[in-house]
């Protein structure tokens, strides 16, 4: 590689080098453009209100203060309550963690059935599930509200878990199905001859194979559920609202002076968990997306 680059540069002369620099500069500009909002958010959240009012938007903070973060976490007012994001953050955790786990597990089972236990109409059922991925959420708001009411889950955290599990299933099934079709059917046959049943094969053979796709599914589902606003705002009530709804309330219900630094800090807090999931599991995410056949 290195040799090739060197010879290319020599034979191409200056114009090649110039082109390369232009490319890097362009890419750098795009990267800066993309990172700018994050920069502004971070710096603003570390400034005092006075400094925001007097200073420039892009300037670094003169005095770094974490007051805004403290307020956002435990003191900011959402309407009449002034407890900050804290309780809503834990609401979101209580919703997202079980919903991600249940939908991933069910998706794995569905995928396993659709991919490896072919039955009459398997394709139709899979297509219908796939179709479920593309139903706009607005369409299901009213029927879901009725269903939740009938189940006695309206306005509760289990209710929100239920909603997210139901609407996550299409995607999780798709992920696992596409992963499991690459596993040779002979594996199931061998296990059947060995005497293993449906669940035994799933637990002992398929699940241990599934780490890459589990990571992909968990990241996808966690991001979807954590960032969800529509279901959160529609199917929650005071006390069960997720963090996205609380963030909206903090930003929109300020009276008097707009506390930009608190808003920014709150937004970053709300975004941190998904960021964390990507950092921790990101390399598996790429690996899982590109994972082809399983080498036996």
């Amino acid at each position: 590689m290195t040799d090739m680059t060197v010879t290319n540069a020599r034979s191409g002369g200056l114009s090649k080098i110039a082109l390369r620099w232009i490319l890097y500069i362009l890419l750098g500009i795009f990267a800066l453009y993309y990172l700018m909002p994050l920069f502004v958010m971070l710096t603003t959240s570390l400034k005092s209100l006075d400094e925001i009012r007097t200073g420039s938007l892009v300037a670094l903070p003169r005095d770094v203060t974490f007051d805004a973060w403290r307020t956002a976490w435990s003191g900011a007012c959402t309407g009449i309550q002034c407890e900050g994001l804290q309780p809503y953050f834990w609401n979101s955790v209580l919703i997202a963690v079980p919903a991600v786990m249940i939908s991933t597990l069910l998706g794995a089972m569905n995928g396993y059935v659709v991919a490896q236990w072919r039955f009459k109409g398997a394709n139709i059922i899979f297509s219908l599930m796939l179709f479920g991925c593309f139903i706009p959420f607005q369409v299901v708001l009213l029927p879901m509200a009725t269903t939740l009411g009938k189940l006695g889950l309206a306005g509760t955290i289990p209710g929100l878990i239920f909603v997210h599990v139901v609407y996550g299933l299409g995607f999780t099934t798709l992920f696992f199905r596409n992963y499991y079709v690459t596993i040779p059917q002979e594996l199931v046959k061998a296990a059947k001859v060995d005497g293993a049943g449906f669940f035994r094969i799933f637990w002992s053979i398929f699940l241990p194979l599934s780490l890459p796709i589990i990571v992909v599914t968990v990241i996808w589902q966690f991001t979807q559920i954590w960032n969800d606003f529509l279901f959160g705002v529609s199917f929650s009530q005071a006390g069960t609202q997720p963090i996205t709804v609380a963030l909206n309330n903090i930003v929109n219900s300020t009276t008097g002076v707009k506390e930009y630094n608190v808003d920014m800090a709150a937004a970053i807090i709300a975004a941190l968990p998904t960021l964390l999931v990507y950092v921790v599991a990101g390399k598996y995410f790429i690996r899982g997306l590109t994972a082809g056949s399983v080498k036996g």
Partner: peptide, 26 residues
Amino acid sequence: IAMVFQSYALYPTMSVAKNITFGMKV
């Protein structure tokens, strides 16, 4: 019966010993 498959169909996440004893374990 016991069967040997074209692709061998060994359980990829299990050791050789576990592959051989899986049937007995089940």
